[in-house]
Design a protein around this nucleic acid. Structure first.
Length: 235
DNA sequence: AAGTTGCGCAACCGCCGCATT
DNA sequence: AAATGCGGCGGTTGCGCAACT
């Protein structure tokens, strides 16, 4: 039933793409609730945003994932789980939708091939459940108050102050998710293993200890000269 | 050549957190 | 403190196309 407020759904036409592109170029990204009106599109704000982010946005990389990208994706997924937006953020030109789609396909292939190789359905299920059981490290959202010392002044201006410095210093504050995570790792220290990425170690809560402990873990997705502190802060 | 199946991608949906009122 | 609106995210669905029978 088509009411007056009903919005168009389904595939986008070239004309709609042009309107949306022109609108974003004119007004910039954001204010998505205004975009349909501004662009003269009979689409909901979410649809506009998604279309822009996943398709129209410049610098979006198309085509197959390179070996490096796949490798990084696997490692990132191991660390973060299904945090597609975070993973995509580490893959320049790739969108979270791309990563998610690729991963779902990749996993399907992997499970299928495992099934085929072993010719035992049970083992394939085990492989699948291994992935599901995988305990992942998830950033714990914490409110950063405006009065937090680390948010005062220029600390987060990475051009003036090293990011790792900020991250290391931030770890000494209270209420940061990585600190909570460190608490967790202390709690789990008896077991020594939190997921197979081994988040354990000293109890002093210094992030550079993390670097030492995490560096042995395959972490090719860290840029040259970048350490875990940088990476975690980046996230 | 026609029908069927499987895959990849684009898009939708529902939920959540945050900011504002 | 509660209600509301918005942006953002992850899971899921559906369509179009290529491969296969």
């Amino acid at each position: 039933m088509e009411g007056p407020s009903s919005v168009r759904k389904g595939a986008w036409s070239k004309c709609e793409d042009d309107l949306l592109r022109a609108c974003v170029q004119l007004y910039g990204e954001g204010k998505w609730h205004l975009v349909p009106q501004r662009a003269g599109l009979n689409r909901c704000r979410k649809s506009c945003r998604l279309r822009w982010l996943n398709y129209l946005k410049p610098n979006i990389k198309r085509g197959d994932f390179s070996e490096d990208e796949v490798d990084m994706m696997i490692r990132m997924h191991k660390l973060l789980g299904n945090r597609w937006s975070l993973i995509a953020g580490r893959l320049p030109g790739r969108t979270s939708n791309d990563v998610k789609n690729y991963w779902n396909t990749y996993m399907r292939r992997k499970v299928y091939s495992h099934k085929k190789d072993n010719n035992v359905e049970k083992q394939a299920d085990e492989a699948k459940s291994t992935v599901q059981r995988h305990q992942v490290i998830k950033p714990i959202p914490r409110a950063l108050t405006k009065t937090a010392p680390r948010l005062q002044g220029k600390l987060f201006n990475s051009s003036k102050v090293g990011v790792s410095e900020a991250a290391g210093a931030a770890s000494s504050g209270s209420g940061n998710w990585w600190e909570t995570l460190l608490e967790n790792k202390k709690d789990n220290h008896e077991g020594n293993i939190i997921n197979n990425t081994c988040f354990f170690g000293g109890a002093d809560g210094e992030l550079d200890l993390w670097d030492e402990e995490l560096n042995p873990i395959a972490c090719d997705f860290l840029s040259e000269g970048e350490n875990w502190s940088d990476f975690l802060l980046d996230l």
